[in-house]
Design a protein around this nucleic acid. Structure first.
Length: 440
DNA sequence: TATCCACAGGAAATCAGGGTGT
DNA sequence: ACACCCTGATTTCCTGTGGATA
């Protein structure tokens, strides 16, 4: 065992022994990176028709002509980004002089018009030349145009906008897409081409018509989800690179593929599952990866996601969740409304010195965020004369919430998880709940 | 059937914190 | 020092709403 009993009769983890055993244990991985989403293999199975289409559209870059702007659609893990990166590698191999430039922009990370322009500029010069804020947008655009003409003379610059759908939800999204798709009109020596990658099929509907026509110069390329057999083949190919020979039990790959196929054929998920299973096996000193490890990995991944997500939430969001936690803990069997959450949140934030009390409107946004991330369930319900509100429930184990929240220093220091809100000590919530019980 | 509650959630405004060039 | 820029978080203001109740 890796635990020692100390004088208080409690078990403590022996880290030295753990590391020693770990080092002595069997080695399973040969090249862990092969299971990372960023890894581009030499062959991309089951994406032939997509590769063919994109290769056809971008081929003119080899002769110095400008490829039309292009859109790729498909659910997460259908190989959109991998295919585009694959094409970029191949294109570079076949380009003898003036190979094209590629600038990748992940719109979830770089999500404002200013930052996109700055990111493109900084990527091309290879330095942080443009600060994160400060300059007017049109100045950056002019600088960028100058740079492109100066540095990428007589060549093509591909601008790959990954998760492009994020942009249109933000203000200025249409404007920046319009600018990017029409850069060529203001360039003399360099030519640019935009490749948009989107998870949402419907995102074009929300775009300005001027942008739509610029982006749909070519028929969009749709990436269909992989089926279980295709996923299994992909996994097999990667497993050969990633693991030492014969460490995977029969059935492991199939099981991973099966799990991922249920989730709209997400290859990223399948790879993540296989990697996690390998890690679990290695940690358990197992010589082989078994189906049991995959089952365990599947459970772990779901939990990890949530735990990590809650852990990384800003304090105010965590406080909103704390309010929901306290309400569900102290009002067993009763309904929780957004009004209750607001009140408890206000009480909690007054406990932490220097923290501002937020408005109802803001709490309403936080509740929506928590709902979207699957931590809580919220149902809008009309109570007639008792108004209309959202009825909220935790959608994950209360114990998990408690464990993660207790890791926050402020929540821990001010003992918020054990705090019984004043509103619960009055009859306010109780009375409301009696009324609600009648109605539901 | 009109009323009215307790919100939902959109749009615009504001603020603080990062920066710029002159 | 000053006017100005960009961003992200939040507030303010506002209109809309389902359905039990008077």
């Amino acid at each position: 065992m890796l635990t020692n009993q100390n004088d208080k009769g409690m078990y403590s983890f022996n880290i030295d022994k753990f590391y020693q055993n770990y080092l002595k244990g069997p080695k399973l991985f040969k090249n862990r990176e092969a299971l990372e989403p960023s890894f581009i293999p030499n062959e991309l199975p089951h994406r032939n028709s997509e590769i063919e289409k994109i290769a056809g559209i971008t081929a003119c870059a080899l002769k110095g002509d400008v490829p039309p702007n292009l859109l790729c659609y498909g659910m997460t893990g259908t190989g959109k980004t991998a295919t585009v990166r694959y094409i970029s590698q191949k294109l570079a191999q076949h380009c003898t002089n003036n190979p094209p430039w590629w600038v990748y922009i992940n719109c979830t990370v770089v999500s404002t018009p200013y930052r996109i322009l700055a990111h493109i500029y900084n990527t091309i010069v290879g330095k942080e030349k443009i600060p994160a804020t400060g300059l007017p947008k049109d100045v950056i655009l002019k600088k960028l145009l100058g740079l492109l003409d100066q540095l990428i003379k007589n060549s093509i610059c591909f601008l790959v906008l990954d998760e492009i759908d994020i942009l249109i939800e933000k203000k200025g999204g249409n404007e920046i897409l319009y600018n990017l798709t029409r850069l060529n009109e203001n360039l003399d020596l360099c030519r640019t081409s935009v490749i948009g990658i989107s998870n949402k099929l419907k995102f074009m509907e929300c775009l300005d018509s001027r942008v739509t026509s610029n982006l749909e110069e070519e028929e969009p390329i749709v990436f269909h989800p992989y089926d279980a057999n295709q996923l299994a083949e992909i996994l097999k190919q990667r497993a050969e690179i990633a693991f030492i020979e014969d460490v995977i039990d029969n059935g492991v790959v199939k099981l991973c593929a099966g799990f991922a196929a249920k989730e709209h054929g997400d290859a990223r998920k399948a790879l993540q599952l296989l990697r996690k299973a390998g890690e679990i096996a290695e940690r358990n000193q197992s010589k082989k990866i078994t189906e049991n490890h995959v089952e365990k990995a599947q459970k772990d991944i779901d939990k990890d996601h949530i735990v990590e997500y809650i852990f990384s939430m800003p304090l105010q969001t965590q406080l909103t969740l704390t309010a929901i936690y306290l309400l569900s803990r102290f009002t067993k069997g009763h309904v929780i409304t957004s009004g209750d959450i607001y009140e408890v949140h206000s009480e909690l934030s007054s406990k932490i010195p220097g923290l501002k009390q937020l408005s109802r409107r803001r709490i309403s946004d936080y509740i929506n965020e928590l709902t979207l991330s699957g931590i809580i369930i919220a149902n809008t319900r009309s109570m007639g004369h008792y108004g209309r509100t959202k009825i909220i429930k935790l959608d994950i184990e209360r114990g998990v919430v408690e464990r993660v929240l207790s890791q926050n220093k402020k929540i821990k220091d001010y003992k918020l998880l054990d705090y019984k809100p004043i509103i619960l000590q009055t009859d306010k919530v109780k009375i409301k709940n009696i009324v609600f019980k009648k109605l539901i």
